[in-house]
């Protein structure tokens, strides 16, 4: 079987525009709290979610809006939820980190690593109640160091549960470079549980679709869990307003507040030796400078890669994009008006 690139591109483009609209609404102050966008992770979401059908479950992390959208949750009620409206998917109770749709067996959590056990439980229920159904856990590489994630892998492997563990590796967890707090390779970690593992370019939706196809097919046949390690970046940072991005984009403005206290502190008597202090300072500048630039600004856009392949049919591509753009505009209008009944007009 081969993936339908048009379908996958359509899912990714819709998700991208949806999240760009979310970004604008957040900037306008219409969405409160933190906002973790999954821009950059669309290929991982599309390549996997497009395989899911009724009875399959998704355990999502704090960055799960695209999966909900791609799984078929009504986009207006999804956006209403992010806007905190009573018409929202969860009546404004959950927000973007706590999206729930029982109909789609989709549950989210803002606790890092919790999608591991959540997927295991969904898979256990599937084994009993819905043979052939699967559960997918989405999480970042930071979650791989949570005990509960490793415990979940062991449990899924021991019980041969139909779980697909999907690790979206951005190499940075908030401000901590993951390699600095992680020993060994994540790929080998999964393999050590006897879980078939695959390392993959998280921007290549075709490869992700194929890998997911194999893993999900095996899980449906009762062959147990799989692990996908997908490398992708998130150019919007950990969340909107990420201080690392702010400082890198506008160092003079941001450092004006930060630098005097830092300088004062580093020059204080009593403390570490000069060499250690210099090391600390260079580690901070490295995070702020090179690391941040590499993480956020050398963005390998998963949409570009697919778009290139579809460009040969320029007319069809333009029409598709135009259609999705109109759709998203209408979703935003309907959501701002709390008009979830109008959803028929947009689908």
């Amino acid at each position: 079987m081969q993936p339908d690139l048009w379908e996958l591109y359509s899912l990714m483009y819709k998700s991208r525009l949806f999240e760009q609209a979310v970004k604008k609404l957040w900037n306008d102050g219409k969405i409160s709290g933190e906002m973790h966008l999954a821009i950059g992770e669309e290929a991982v979401a599309a390549g996997i979610v497009s395989h899911l059908k009724e009875g399959d479950a998704m355990a999502l992390d704090h960055r799960g809006t695209p999966q909900m959208l791609m799984r078929g949750v009504d986009p207006v009620s999804l956006l209403c939820e992010l806007l905190g409206k009573p018409e929202g998917l969860c009546g404004g109770m959950g927000g973007h980190m706590h999206l729930f749709s029982e109909q789609h067996l989709a549950a989210s959590s803002g606790i890092v690593g919790s999608s591991g056990p959540a997927a295991v439980g969904f898979a256990l229920a599937a084994q009993h109640l819905r043979p052939g159904a699967v559960a997918v856990a989405f999480f970042g590489e930071g979650a791989m160091n949570q005990g509960m994630m490793m415990e979940s892998m062991n449990l899924a492997a021991t019980w041969k549960l139909p779980v697909l563990f999907v690790c979206k590796d951005s190499k940075i967890a908030i401000t901590t470079v993951s390699s600095s707090v992680t020993s060994g390779s994540l790929f080998n970690r999964a393999k050590s549980f006897n879980i078939p593992a695959k390392e993959i370019d998280g921007t290549d939706v075709e490869m992700i679709w194929l890998a997911a196809h194999k893993a999900i097919d095996e899980a449906r046949r009762g062959e147990g869990p799989s692990f996908l390690l997908a490398h992708c970046s998130r150019p919007e940072g950990h969340f909107l307003g990420d201080p690392l991005i702010r400082i890198t984009k506008n160092p003079l403005k941001e450092m004006k507040d930060m630098a005097p206290a830092l300088l004062k502190s580093i020059l204080k008597p009593k403390g570490a030796a000069v060499r250690e202090r210099t090391e600390s300072l260079s580690s901070v500048t490295s995070i702020l400078g090179q690391t941040t630039k590499a993480q956020f600004f050398n963005f390998n856009d998963p949409l570009d890669m697919t778009r290139k392949e579809l460009k040969s049919d320029k007319n069809r591509l333009e029409q598709l994009e135009e259609k999705i753009e109109q759709e998203i505009k209408q979703i935003v209008i309907n959501a701002l008006n709390g008009n979830t009944d109008n959803k028929k007009a947009v689908t």
Binding site: L244, M258, A261, S265, I266, K268, R277, E279, S280, V284
Partner: peptide
Amino acid sequence: MLRVNLFSRFG
């Protein structure tokens, strides 16, 4: 990063 002043002084 959260305690950058203490990090830079105490290592």
